[in-house]
């Protein structure tokens, strides 16, 4: 485990905590895309199929459990919690899951490291994670007025992706046989999707003004 990987995992964890904090303490999920959260729940459910079959480390297992539990509980809050669900911007969050899920599934059937159920599901989860943020970005664009916690949530997710890229570069030069094209390309695509958001996030931070995306 290198410093980039650990920092990446920690920013990922922080993004989830920020989101849960917002939902749990303010009892609001305004500005958060349920579509994106459902896609993340699906991402973790399909990626961590190995959780009970391959033991890697205690850290690995605990983090997997945290991501699974948090993603499903966020979805539960947004759909079922009697106060939180009222703040959900249903009319603005109109992205169709299937437009993302189907192409990713098809792509995973053709491009994968090995044609087995677990491998195809793992590849599918990588492709889906790359694009799962899209409904959230569309929602941000539509609502424009972004509260601090939502802005921080998306920023932390983007930071996590950027740190993972540094982690891959580091591992490529320090570990033999560390070549994972599928992971790298989907990870790169995922990070690039944040570029536009980052640009406005840093500008608002630099000028000390509230984050607003252009129409």
């Amino acid at each position: 485990m290198n410093i980039f990987r650990l920092a990446g995992d920690m920013t990922h964890l922080m993004s989830v905590i920020v989101l849960l904090l917002k939902i749990h303490t303010i009892k609001s999920c305004a500005g958060i895309s349920l579509k994106t959260q459902e896609l993340y729940a699906l991402v973790f459910a399909t990626r961590y199929l190995d959780i009970f079959t391959d033991f890697i480390s205690l850290y690995n297992t605990i983090m997997k459990l945290i991501f699974l539990a948090s993603s499903f509980s966020i979805v539960w809050y947004m759909r079922q919690h009697k106060i939180v669900r009222r703040s959900y911007d249903k009319d603005q969050d109109t992205f169709r899951h299937l437009f993302l899920i189907l192409p990713c599934l098809l792509l995973a059937l053709f491009i994968n490291e090995k044609f087995t159920f677990k491998e195809v599901m793992w590849t599918f989860s990588l492709f889906l994670e790359a694009v799962a943020i899209l409904p959230q970005l569309v929602l941000l664009q539509r609502t424009r007025n972004i509260d601090n916690l939502t802005g921080q949530y998306v920023f932390l997710l983007g930071a996590y992706r950027a740190l993972y890229i540094l982690n891959w570069i580091y591992r490529y030069f320090t570990e033999p046989h560390y070549v994972h094209w599928i992971t790298w390309i989907s990870g790169l695509v995922q990070t690039l999707l944040y570029a536009d958001f980052f640009y406005y996030y840093f500008n608002s931070w630099k000028n000390n003004v509230k984050l607003q995306l252009p129409a």
């Binding site: 990987r5 990922h12 391959d54 890697i56 793992w122 993972y164 046989h177």
Partner: peptide
Amino acid sequence: ECFYEPKDEL
């Protein structure tokens, strides 16, 4: 040589 290492990333 094992090219098929376990996936240790999250």
